[in-house]
Each structure stands twice: as C-alpha cells, then as structure tokens.
Simulated assay, not measured.
Amino acid sequence: MSLHIPPQPEPVAVGRRRVVPLIDAAGDVLPPERLFPHLPAAELSRLLAEDGMRSPMVVTGFAILGGGKTILVDTCLGGRKQGKSGPFPGFTSRWMTTLAEAGIDPGAVDIVVNTHLHHDHVGWNTTDELEPTFPAARYLLAEKEYEHFAGGRIRHARRISECIVPVQKAGLLDLVTGVHRIDDAVRLLPAPGHTPGHLVVEISDGGRTAVIGGDLIHHPLQLSHPDISSSLCDDPGQAAVSRHRVLNDLADREGIFLATHLTRAGTVRRRGAGFTLHDSP
C-alpha cells in the first residue's frame, strides 16, 4: 500500500558538491518478514525490537550537484510505460514532480548512473513513451550488470526493453568496468552481491566523503547486523562482503552513507560488530 511520502531529506554537503536525496515513493510492500524470510520469526522480532526498526520502505534517487555538472543516481520507479501498469504494485511514482520541485531540468542533466538494473532504480531512464528522459545525459551502467540482465532472462526482458534499449538506441549508454571515475570528486565502485554488477557511488571533496549505496542495504537492520542479506540479493554472501567493506571504509573516514531504501543518511560509526548512522554536522 502506498503511503504519504515523508518530507524530502536535507541535502548533504560534501566539499563543493551537494548530494540531494529525492524520495519517489513510500510504502509497506516489502516489510521485514519478506526481506528476511530466512530468519525465524522470533529472531527477526528480537532483532527489530533492538532499535525499533519498523518503518515504511522508501524509494529514493539522488542528485549530485556542483563541479559544473548535474549527476543523477538511480531513476526510481518510472511511470506507466505505454499505458501499462507500473512495475511495483503498491507504489505510485511521482519522481519527475520531485525533480521539478528540486529545480532539476531533465534537459540539463549531464550524467545518469544506474547502480543496478532492478526496476526501482531505472524506471525514469525513459518516459512513458519510451524516449530517454534525460536526452543530453550519458547513462552509466556496469558492463557486468548489462551482460547479466540482457542475457535472455525472461523475467527481466520488459525492464530491459523499456528502460535500457531506448537509451542504447539513442547512443546514450556507456558500459563501465571496474572503478570508474566521473570527475575529480565522483567515482563508481563495484559492490557486487545484490546483483553481479551492483555499483556504489563515492563522492569525496574538501576532506569529506559520502557514498550512495544503492541496494547495499535495504533495511536499518542490516546496519547493526551487516552479515544479514535480504531475500532480494542474488549472492547473499558476496553482498555481505561488499556491505562490510563499504561501511568499514566509511567508518574509518567518518564518511556519510545514503541508500535508496533508507529514510535518512548519516555518518557511519561502528557499534559492536555492526554500524550505526549519526546525524552529520
């Protein structure tokens, strides 16, 4: 069920760059019981009770502003492509309105990063008429991710045909490998596990670092218990390795973590065997 969208979070300053979270939708379509079905009910209830971690899931994209360019990270749910029903029952996308309210003109976007190819991260790559939504942008995607999802897997065919093929036909798609630097402050880092080519986006400038984590984390429970991967991960063990690596690095640097499905960002600090987010100054 779609819920009232919470207030848009405050932008995060990273040196000369500004990271703007842009919430598209919120709802209870993926409660913890569905995210972590491998955990016994009593164990899940106990873990959730530790921090009162029951909150609706959000779908968020991000804008990185400054440095002479506008970068978008993930394009959320998308609309009713050619009149078809939306991709995520229970959520109605309003992301193009959210972009407009943030003062972002689709024609002025320079780069679109897709952290991976799940439907709630690529939806507004294209309009309802299947044209590139950001016609002047380069769309960046991991080559390994493209090869995995474009390899004839039937259940992903619609998303590829609607959200990737039009961009590719327009000559706007760039497939990247390994660590890919966009500019002096922004780079893409492989963080596989959730999907084979899953990326995170690191912003480092003026002595500060932030990471947009895509689906490295789906629920706050995974901050305090980073070994726990969700049912949505292709390779749960590898996802946990990537999660530990990114969060440990941020904790070492007092860096900021943002993710698609978390309602807040914060500075990463260690707490026991896990991590917690603290409000950033």
Rank of each mutant, 00 (worst) to 15 (best):
I203R: 03
I203H: 04
D205A: 13
G206D: 02
G206E: 02
G206S: 01
R208H: 12
R208Q: 14
T209L: 06
T209N: 00
T209C: 11
A210W: 03
V211Q: 02
V211T: 06
I212P: 06
I212N: 06
G214V: 10
G214W: 07
D215L: 07
L216W: 01
I217E: 00
H218V: 07
H218L: 15
H218S: 11
Q222L: 13
L223P: 04
S224I: 07
P226C: 12
D227Y: 09
D227G: 12
D227K: 13
I228N: 05
S229V: 00
S229N: 04
S230D: 03
S230Y: 00
S231T: 09
S231W: 08
L232W: 06
L232P: 04
C233E: 12
D235C: 05
D235W: 05
P236L: 08
P236K: 08
P236W: 07
G237E: 15
A239C: 15
A239G: 02
A239Y: 08
V241I: 13
V241Y: 05
S242E: 07
R243W: 01
R243N: 06
H244D: 10
H244S: 09
H244Y: 15
H244N: 11
H244K: 14
R245D: 10
V246P: 04
V246Q: 05
L247G: 10
L247S: 10
D249V: 01
